[in-house]
Design a protein around this nucleic acid. Structure first.
Lengths: 207, 207, 207, 207
DNA sequence: GATGAATGAGCCTTCATTCAT
DNA sequence: GATGAATGAAGGCTCATTCAT
């Protein structure tokens, strides 16, 4: 393995330990010693691969965001050409095993809570959301246009995004009592309420 | 003023300074010195009125929750007997000037993020949400029953709650760029999508 | 009761609470709040009757020393004219119910331990001991002279003093397991070893 | 030097600085900052090698006790087989340059004074004393048995222990005015008074 | 006199950062 | 590269002192 790859693997290992630590101890209780311990590496390693604690947190947020976008992009591509199918695919990505992990959701809430104090966090969170809204608004627009619906696509997209984040918080608060599929249901029903014809085959009533 | 009242006023003053500080510096950056400064009192006062920092944070969360419940309860009572009007009143309370303040929303996100690490936080957050869900589920149930809708009232209520929290996060991330009324719109439209007849007079399309 | 007497009673009450607190929490754990609580008075009272914490501690030590000297003086006077009887009376005073209280012994050890750091403590402790040594040396001298013993009275007195203090420490460490009479025995046997004829009638072998 | 040895050296360095600081400032005035300063290391080092201040104090007491026991054991072994010689050797160890240092005696008084408040201190102090009493009682018993004395060996041993502790306090209070040999004299005379034949050659009258 | 609130200095502890091995 | 010791700044907490009622 190349030096580069080794280095990246170490960084990823530390980032995941950071997510784990944030999830278990909160951002307040996340210390470099804890992260090192969670990663199973010696204390000094953290300082070796990341300039500072801030840099580590920043890298962790970037990883979460990049990771999310990659999953969403793949889901959309796999869903085919239909806007409705693509929209559902986005929601399914939002509650996929990869994205909606307890640890990751916990980390998201931590980063959100610090956006006011740390502009870099805010920028990245807003950027991700903008990209999400751009994508889902466009899909809604196509559905609205094709189906002749009388709703504002941006508003529907905004509501969807809100509901996803809200359900993540719910999952976070309920600490595992709310499953991914259960959490996803209101989101799909929401879309179905606005686009009944298009979502009919994609969302089962009983689900 | 009685000793009791004075004491309560001081406590409230400190709690509000805590909310302010959390909003500006995040939970990580919230120190007792900052809180004291924000409250315009000397450092020792905090220790005098609250046993510890944890106790102060706990009291702050309790205040936020109690405050929210009082506002919601008043709104529902003022809304009259109609379930639909009551449901809309709840949403309006969620985005009222009293509840949806930047400072308070920021504090909520902070407490949510620490629920995993601080069980007491989790309990209070879940308790509030349970109470919210109980109320809104019941209202939805009444609407569904009276209107003959074919939806699960609990799911609609869960989605509403999620969307409200999601929009709060949105307001938090956008740091003032998303106004209270603008944030409220998707929530009302969401309800209107499920209960079109009942919400027709209460939610304007153009709003 | 006169103002003066009332004042003195309050001061004594606080001093005894101080002894109690030192005994239970150690000098390190002795705070003015604890003393006030032990005395059953409000917090501010302490500052009212004593200029400072140091002054309170100083007054407590003075009280202990004065108290001891009064008890010893009375015991000697009551013992009659015989030097041997007087010497035994001193030892009995050292382990009397008044002097050898657990609380008081604990306070003595606390003051001894701080003599290096607080010259005022050292002065008072040394002063008391000088007075004790002067008295016991003189008594020993009279016994030696009259009995024709071949020992240095000062050395015997020094040994006696040391053994008393040592037994106090023993009682302190054993926390009540070593009774006052049991602790006194080696001291009396010590004297009897040097002055067998004079102590014969005063110290029982079986005791 | 090995890591282990280095670590132990640092710990010892800090323990000795603690003894020094307790001696100079008393337990009340002993702060970690003072200890660090006395040890000539930075402030954080203390927290690095000892979990807490309590742990440091506990380790200091353990060191004092272990140190004492080692000195006493060596002295006894060097003294040969004679019980009387061994007993004298113990007393000589009690007032040896190694054991009866001003700093160490001061520390002992400090620990004694806190035994009521800190059970761990009490346990270690009592344990040491028990071990001392066991050894000296046994030696006294052997002397009594061989010499046909009519005294209780345990009482003699208890008196010896008390006198040693009492003389330590005396040395502490007199702050150097009472030398080690001078302090030892009453203890040896005490033994000689009970065991005149056996101690005759070991204790000079003029000493 | 008596009360207890207010102040702020000082302490223990934690922890990010730096550095020597 | 990797380790973990060393540093010192900063936070929470305690508490003696002061003061207003």
């Amino acid at each position: 393995m190349s030096q580069e790859a080794k280095r990246d693997r170490r960084r990823l290992q530390l980032i995941e330990a950071t997510i784990e630590t944030i999830a278990e101890r909160g951002l307040v209780g996340t210390t470099l010693a804890q992260v090192a311990k969670a990663a199973g590496v010696s204390y000094g390693v953290v300082g070796f691969y990341f300039r500072s604690k801030d840099a580590l947190l920043r890298a962790t947020l970037d990883h979460l965001a990049d990771d999310y976008e990659a999953v969403a992009r793949r889901a959309v591509e796999k869903a085919g050409a239909s806007p409705a199918a693509r929209l559902v695919a986005v929601v399914e990505a939002d509650f996929s095993a990869e994205v909606a992990q307890r640890r990751k959701i916990a980390a998201w809430t931590a980063f959100w809570s610090e956006t006011r104090a740390t502009p870099a966090f805010r920028r990245r969170c807003v950027e991700l959301q903008d990209s999400y809204l751009t994508l889902t608004s466009e899909l809604c627009r196509q559905i609205v246009e094709a189906g002749g619906y009388a709703v504002d696509p941006r508003t529907v997209a905004a509501g969807l995004n809100a509901m996803v984040y809200g359900q993540w918080i719910e999952m976070h608060l309920r600490a595992g009592k709310l499953g991914r599929e259960q959490a996803r249901r209101p989101c799909l029903l929401y879309l179905k309420a606005f686009f009944p014809d298009d979502l009919a085959g994609l969302v089962r009533d009983a689900a």
